[in-house]
Amino acid sequence: MTLNIPNILTILRLAAAPGVAIMFLYFNRPWADWFALVLFVGAALTDFLDGYLARLWKQESKLGAMLDPIADKVMVIIALVVITGFSGMNPYILLPATLIIFREVFVSGLREFLGDTAGTLKVTKLAKWKTTAQMVGIALLFAAGAFEHYFGMQSLAMTSEMVTDAISGNGPDELGLWWKYKGMVFSSWAGIIVLWIAAALTVITGWDYFNKSMPYLRDDA
């Protein structure tokens, strides 16, 4: 078992996955949202860095090949569970999150069943785009949660007319509600759109893997 820098980065990404959820246990919002966002983005960056360094330094190993997809899936699934929780089970988030989690578990089970022949299911470029879309969408939704908490707490004691005037520019805005509202709306809708794109890519690549595995699933194979 080789423990080099690329593998250490992969292990750190795997360890960071539960840390995203732990942030909400030990910190109040919006600090938990920001800490989770920073931890998630940092871990996501290692996903690109560890593979690049492994190829650059010719340090590709079986340990890295085994841990890398596990770390990606664990990080995405835990983050989606956290987001669906603090979003109040928003159906626009819950449905794509369900499709993504279903596909990740299904493909992992498929690879486990195929055993040695799972090597024939090569990671495609579309699957890499899928992973990128998942991470970008999740990062945007963590940011949306932080903006939403700021906006909600600071406008709590204000009337609806005062809030409307502040965000429309027709009244005083000492608390900066305008930019917090815009940040909340942009990051929320952008995150949802990217998450749906990720879900579509997830379903397409999942079907592609299943279709390629069909010859190995026949009883006469």
Rank of each mutant, 00 (worst) to 15 (best):
Y181M: 10
G109E: 07
I70D: 00
V203D: 03
L39I: 14
P30F: 04
T117G: 06
F86V: 12
K180W: 05
A166T: 06
K180N: 04
Q59K: 10
A166M: 10
V107F: 05
E112D: 11
R55I: 02
G88E: 14
T98Q: 05
V41R: 08
K130H: 11
P6D: 07
E148T: 12
L177K: 08
G109Y: 13
N90M: 10
L80G: 03
A118F: 06
L121P: 03
G152H: 08
S108L: 13
T131I: 11
F186N: 08
N7R: 00
I5M: 08
L80S: 04
F113E: 14
P69T: 13
A199F: 09
R55Q: 06
I204P: 03
W189K: 13
V82D: 02
V107Q: 04
P18M: 09
V20M: 11
T164K: 12
F35P: 02
R103I: 01
L37V: 02
L201T: 10
A199C: 10
L217S: 11
R55D: 11
F151Q: 04
K130R: 11
I11K: 01
M89L: 15
S155I: 10
I78G: 04
Y216T: 10
W178R: 06
K125D: 12
G169R: 05
F186I: 12
W34G: 11
Y181E: 01
V20I: 15
I197V: 15
N90S: 13
A146T: 03
L53H: 03
L12P: 05
I100F: 01
T202I: 12
A65G: 08
A15D: 09
L110R: 12
D219C: 10
I77L: 13
Q154V: 07
N211C: 09
F151C: 06
L195W: 04
M75V: 03
M158E: 14
L14F: 14
I78V: 15
D220R: 13
F40T: 07
A139M: 08
V41W: 10
A144E: 01
A44T: 07
Q154G: 01
K58V: 12
N7Y: 00
F48R: 08
W189P: 03
L14R: 04
A166Q: 07
E174F: 09
T131V: 13
I167N: 02
L177Q: 00
R218I: 14
Q154H: 04
I192D: 07
G51N: 05
R55V: 03
G169L: 05
A221M: 13
P18K: 06
V194A: 03
Y209H: 10
Y26M: 09
L67H: 03
Y216F: 15
A43H: 06
G119L: 09
K58T: 03
Q134F: 09
M135W: 04
P96M: 04
P172G: 06
T117S: 13
G171M: 10
G191L: 11
A79F: 09
G152R: 14
T2P: 02
E174R: 04
T159N: 10
T117A: 15
I70Y: 04
I204Y: 14
N28K: 14
V123Y: 12
L126K: 12
Y181K: 02
D50K: 06
A157R: 15
R13A: 13
T98Y: 01
K212L: 11
T10I: 02
A200S: 11
K212S: 12
T117V: 15
L175S: 05
G183S: 01
A118P: 06
